[in-house]
Design a protein around this nucleic acid. Structure first.
Lengths: 233, 233
DNA sequence: CAGCTAGAATAGACCGGTCGGTCTAGTGAG
DNA sequence: CTCACTAGACCGACCGGTCTATTCTAGCTG
């Protein structure tokens, strides 16, 4: 007896399944019909709620980010621990979530790798997400520095990007192994290095701050026609 | 006047274009026809030289690894520098190569993220590649340890995996930004941390050595039918 | 309350295009 | 003559997306 608003709305079920299936399949190899079958929703509903497959995926990323920010809220504001411990707790929470999903890594990393080569919409969207996360971590790292948990030479935002990037690499390796080991190893490494001041600003080039990815260098030689859909095939 | 074995054989041109296009588009969004057009080769030739698109991509990975190992040969055996400097040179060489390609990151990372969620052939293939690289780096790190360039507490193979994983994360971020900055930052960070001993064996779980990825945990709930082609859609 | 209606949401047949892959014919070097 | 290779027409399957029809539901009216 699932009618009468069906417990969850179709839109909600689509987003839920989208989180799961996009993480597993990636974007291009996830057919709309597969998603529809998994969510038990007919096609008409899908295109009623979302403009296109791409629009849907962007909404799924938004939802993913809601979860991430909820995790950040829960961890970074914890009262009874040091700033560095709070940051570490966030990553450990992420690791546990990856575990519940079968160690398929991070959706931002997955979609970022798959799509950023030819689709600027996804590229700037996902870089914006990373940047946003790094900014929040940086704020907490600044507190850690103030409290003397890390040397004063550690530049919060640079260290936050570093931490996040290393984590994403470990998440990829964890996806390949279906195992949390690389995640734990990178946390031990990074936090030990952070405390010892290895993340001092060093050679670090100009900047890497602003919110969204700019239109930097253009790829050497290639297509990139612009139709309404499938523009990056 | 391109006949008479056409300067490069069709097979060679396909592999060359495969390297370029797979890095840019990824696997699923690269159509065989696009590849054919770019290489100026008809379909018949493609399926004469390769069993399938998947077989082709695997051969492209082999070719990619030939380049990587050539880079490792060139750097790790250099006589007039410390072991740690030799390793760093390898990564700097990789960074320069990424630059020539427009900072599209690492093909292993890209294909690994895109395909490892649903295709075990690619998953174990790519993990094998990473493992192989890490092993060579570990050998050089062992020399570095012997020479006292890194503390004795640094376990070479674990540190090599760590280094490689962090590098891959930076490569993803570099792809998103189309900029080498994350690569340089991660090198400064990792090598500084390595020297200071942050990569000591620490919590590091059991192992992570063998050549190919095992069949570990199965993904929670999902499909994975096995037809001859498209088995992971 | 019943009766009506507008619009949201569901439902799935259907569309043109493109996908990976097959097949047959032709070509050229040894 | 043989056989590796080139050449591209062709195939069924499946792709993302559109369309029309139907059902559900909130709100208005008397």
């Amino acid at each position: 007896m699932p009618p009468a608003h069906a417990i969850q709305s179709a839109r909600e079920r689509l987003l839920d399944e989208g989180l799961r299936l996009l993480l597993m399949h990636g974007y291009n190899s996830l057919g709309v019909q597969t998603l529809l079958d998994a969510a038990g929703v007919p096609k008409g509903s899908f295109y009623h709620h979302f403009e296109s497959k791409q629009d849907f995926a962007l909404k799924v990323i938004d939802r993913y980010m809601e979860e991430v920010h909820a995790g950040l809220d829960a961890c970074l504001n914890a009262p009874d621990s040091s700033s560095l411990e709070r940051i570490r707790r966030f990553f450990e929470l992420s690791r546990d979530k990856y575990g519940r999903e079968g160690y398929l890594g991070c959706m931002l990393g997955g979609l970022g790798q798959e799509l950023s080569g030819v689709n600027d919409t996804f590229r700037s969207k996902i870089e914006g997400c990373f940047s946003h996360i790094a900014e929040r971590l940086a704020a907490c790292l600044a507190q850690a520095r103030e409290a003397g948990e890390v040397p004063g030479s550690v530049e919060p935002r640079q260290a936050a990007d570093l931490l996040l990037n290393c984590w994403e690499g470990a998440a990829l390796r964890s996806r390949l192994w279906r195992d949390p080991m690389p995640l734990d190893a990178v946390l031990d490494f990074c936090f030990s290095a952070l405390r010892s001041g290895a993340a001092a600003s060093g050679a670090g080039a100009p900047e890497m701050r602003s919110g969204a990815a700019p239109d930097r260098n253009v790829v050497p030689g290639d297509d990139n026609a612009h139709g309404k859909t499938q523009q990056w095939r």
